[in-house]
Computed example of a mutant assay.
Amino acid sequence: MRPPLQVSLNGSRDAAEGAAVPVSPEDLVEAALGAVAAGAGEVLVHPRTPCGRESLSPRVVGPVLEALRDAGIGVPVVVPAGVGAEPDQAGRLERVRSWTVLPDRATVHFGEPGAEDLARALLARGVAVDAVVPLGGGTGGAGSPGPAGSGTDGVEPLVRFLAWPALDHGRVRLVAEPAAADPALVAGLRWLPPVPVLLCGREAAAWPVLRLAARCGAGARTGLGDVLHLPDGRPARSNAELVAAAVAELAGAAAPAGAATAGSR
């Protein structure tokens, strides 16, 4: 069975990057409903304050999660727990420990300081962890300014993840972000601990990496948080339109039966 397709509703974008990007709780609910109806099996949402700033505050995260669930979003909901929402390392731990409404999963960037402690704190609260690691140059993003996606202390995020003694692999997933759809970048993932793998690309890499995920049998992600254009280059009008296009792309690029894949452990 193919892993569920994740939709990134808004990512680090704001309304200035396009009218289609949902920001308010009402817009996020509408976007999530449309994306799930189009085939998304998970929803990644970046909660924001009324002024548009990302936040890990329980007063911001809780109402967004409640609005999604009250609207009937029955698929897992994922939120980020990174420096984009809370720059202070101790502050991130304090925030996730104070959540009154819990997401199903939370993303932890292993290129950011304190990733291991943050991931442990989330698991202790019953929140599954998506461990994010860039693969190749140019994918580090916030908190990973070093060469080839290295972390703030120069340690490769994938090396840090491999050294992390997770006690419960059943609630950990690796989210690998290749800089390009290069099979060599993900070939070594088959030797990882027995955790599921989700591959995602951003902007120009988004659609090629999604097709690579299909060939590998790994999970995949799309959405306005990652890409603003459809595979044919037209601007996407909604997350639902991107999800529908991704479902078609995944079906067309599916791995042949019996193929050895990164996500088949």
Rank of each mutant, 00 (worst) to 15 (best):
N10E: 07
P147C: 01
G151C: 08
S55E: 13
R48N: 02
G225M: 00
T261L: 13
G217Y: 09
A119S: 08
V175W: 03
R120N: 08
A257W: 09
V155K: 04
W99M: 10
H229G: 04
P208L: 07
L210A: 07
V127C: 04
S150Y: 09
R234P: 12
G62T: 06
A184V: 14
G91C: 12
R265Y: 12
V64Y: 11
P58Y: 06
A90F: 11
G146K: 03
S12R: 09
H46T: 14
P50D: 11
G223D: 10
A187W: 07
R92H: 12
R221L: 08
P145Y: 00
A184K: 07
G82E: 05
H229E: 08
R120E: 13
P80F: 01
A90W: 11
S238G: 08
A218Y: 02
V133A: 10
P22W: 00
L122S: 01
A81I: 00
V77R: 01
L250F: 00
E112T: 09
V23L: 14
A259S: 14
A37I: 07
P25M: 03
G141Y: 05
L228N: 10
A176E: 10
A166V: 12
G151K: 00
P113L: 04
L122V: 02
P256W: 08
E116Q: 15
A115W: 01
H109D: 14
A240N: 02
G223Y: 02
G74F: 05
L122E: 03
A121L: 07
L158N: 08
D130A: 14
G143L: 04
A187K: 10
P3E: 09
V159I: 10
R13D: 01
E86G: 03
P47H: 07
L162M: 13
V23A: 13
L33C: 14
V7K: 01
P183I: 03
L68D: 04
R125W: 11
R215Q: 15
P235I: 11
V83S: 02
G74H: 10
V101T: 15
G111L: 05
A148Y: 11
R211L: 12
G111D: 07
R171T: 14
L122T: 04
I73S: 05
R265Q: 12
L68P: 01
P183D: 10
V129H: 00
P157I: 04
T139F: 09
V29G: 03
P103K: 09
G252A: 15
V29L: 11
E249G: 01
D182T: 06
L224A: 00
R221G: 01
R173I: 03
A213M: 07
L123K: 06
A40T: 05
A37G: 07
A254Q: 08
P22A: 06
T49A: 08
P208I: 03
P47F: 07
G74Y: 01
E203V: 09
G154A: 11
M1R: 14
P194I: 12
E17Q: 15
D168G: 06
P4N: 08
L224F: 05
S144T: 14
R237N: 08
E30G: 14
S55V: 11
A71I: 02
L56D: 06
P87F: 02
R234Y: 11
A176N: 05
A142M: 13
A81H: 06
D232I: 13
E17H: 13
D70F: 02
V61L: 01
A163N: 15
E54P: 04
G217K: 11
P80D: 10
D88E: 15
A163L: 15
P193H: 12
T139V: 13
P76M: 06
T152A: 15
E86Q: 15
G62L: 07
